[in-house]
């Protein structure tokens, strides 16, 4: 098996993980990597837990990885980080959006949102925690939260030299959101201590 890297982007349907994966994939392709990406569509998109996987290297076989095999998890919501934590390698990295979204059973008061999601992740993995939603809001729109997290991911994985990411973002997002997303990328990048 050739050496490959894999990222797992997890969140709640509608948070924009797919666009983040698209930027990542576009950059990796330009850098000459073989890339495979896997998403699940359909019912789970209706407010359910969603995950997108990106797997890259010189030659990639399976588009998906199994438990204990991801190099990085980017969690758009902190309980989702815990849900997919077992997919992370023991020396894997987690970028976690410090943001809480109740599930229907929590909202209904039938169960509690689990305590200590961040602490549990930090106790086991190298973690970068940021309030990406607030950062995005301060830049002008909560919608660029996904690119904030992408900036953090690039920094956390030490992928600055892979490709000119700002250039990739500029060409991937709609033109009218270019500046917003570039600022989001930079802010996310800065929010992470290498």
């Amino acid at each position: 098996m050739t050496k490959t890297k894999s990222a797992l982007l997890v969140g709640v349907g509608g948070q924009g993980a797919i666009l983040t994966a698209k930027v990542l994939v576009n950059g990796l392709m330009e850098a000459g990597y073989d890339v495979k990406m896997s998403e699940v569509h359909g019912m789970s998109q209706r407010g359910g837990s969603v995950s997108t996987q990106v797997h890259w290297g010189e030659k990639v076989n399976s588009p998906v990885i199994g438990k204990g095999a991801a190099d990085i998890i980017v969690a758009f919501e902190k309980m989702e980080a815990v849900r997919y934590a077992d997919y992370l390698k023991p020396d894997g990295i987690a970028v976690i959006n410090d943001y809480e979204m109740a599930s229907s059973s929590i909202a209904a008061g039938l169960t509690q949102y689990p305590e200590g999601c961040l602490e549990a992740m930090q106790a086991h993995f190298k973690c970068h925690v940021l309030k990406a939603g607030e950062i995005a809001q301060s830049l002008g729109s909560a919608k660029c939260m996904n690119i904030v997290l992408f900036g953090s991911m690039v920094k956390a994985l030490g992928m600055d030299d892979v490709v000119d990411w700002e250039d990739v973002i500029a060409r991937t997002v709609p033109p009218k959101f270019k500046e917003l997303n570039l600022n989001a990328y930079r802010a996310g990048h800065e929010a992470v201590q290498a």
């Binding site: 815990v82 849900r83 934590a85 229907s104 086991h124």
Partner: peptide, 28 residues
């Protein structure tokens, strides 16, 4: 997935970490 095949054919356990907190299910 590759890990499941490894585990079931060769008995190789995955190095999965249990962080000790359980996520509440999030159905659509």
């Amino acid at each position: 997935n590759p890990q499941i095949v490894k585990e079931r054919v060769f008995g190789e356990k995955s190095p999965a970490t249990d962080v000790g907190v359980t996520a509440v299910s999030r159905p659509p």
